[in-house]
């Protein structure tokens, strides 16, 4: 960019930019756009609801740490989406990026507590391989469209720190996928489960920062 820019005088650049001006509609507020994305994720969850085992869900939600883990995942998804949209607009504070930290701590902490409970009071069998791989596939397949949608929405703005914004988008998509997994989860949270979720969350965030960062930077 700069090599090309270096050779032309400012006036020429200004004139060419002014000539190429097309009317644009100011983007809606970041909070509104984050809300729109959350609504889309919720719609996806509702569309999947007929396949959920609601009785098992009700039983699991009676257990405090599972309830808090699910709540943490939902809050992390919302907070990270809001932070991603805020950081995609120039002039907004970078402190928004810290917003998802507290809900993420609740999410991971509560899931960890669940593991501890399973460890202290064994009896809730650890997930076997097919179940675990089922979760993995679910998390990845749900994360992918959520990430894509989020990155496409973020591209319409102008993230000045594309990697940070993309990492927040990844966190949001991964947390939303984990929250959507809750009604379909065949077992309680266990250590392998938590490790698996963390791996998937790491994968989704990493993939988003790698691909999304470039997508956002180029846009």
């Amino acid at each position: 960019m700069s090599e090309r820019a270096h050779t032309i005088p400012h006036d020429v650049l200004v004139d060419s930019l002014a000539r190429g001006l097309t009317p644009v509609r100011p983007l809606p507020a970041p909070a509104f756009r984050a809300f729109a994305w959350c609504a889309a994720a919720l719609a996806l969850g509702l569309a999947l609801m007929p396949f959920a085992d609601l009785d098992a869900l009700r039983t699991r939600m009676a257990v405090p740490d599972l309830r808090y883990a699910a709540l943490g995942a939902v809050l992390t998804a919302v907070a990270a989406a809001l932070a991603a949209f805020q950081t995609s607009v120039p002039g907004r504070s970078w402190a928004w990026a810290t917003l998802p930290l507290a809900p993420a701590a609740l999410w991971i902490g509560a899931s960890g507590l669940g593991c501890l409970r399973a460890w202290v009071a064994p009896g809730t069998g650890a997930p076997d391989l097919p179940e675990a791989s089922g979760c993995l596939v679910f998390l990845l397949t749900v994360s992918l469209p959520l990430s894509l949608g989020l990155v496409l929405m973020l591209r319409r703005a102008c993230p000045l720190r594309p990697n940070l914004t993309a990492a927040l988008a990844g966190l949001s998509a991964a947390a939303a996928a984990a929250a959507l997994l809750v009604p379909f989860h065949p077992h309680d949270a266990t250590a392998t489960d938590l490790a698996l979720h963390l791996v998937v969350v790491g994968l989704v965030i990493g993939a988003n920062s790698l691909a999304g960062g470039r997508l956002l930077a180029r846009g």
Partner: peptide
Amino acid sequence: QDVLLTIHRARATYDPARPFLPWLRAI
């Protein structure tokens, strides 16, 4: 010139209800 190009690309993100200079300064 980098900033001019970024302003052009990011012009939809400016909210006219907010001050302009902080937006420009961030870019």
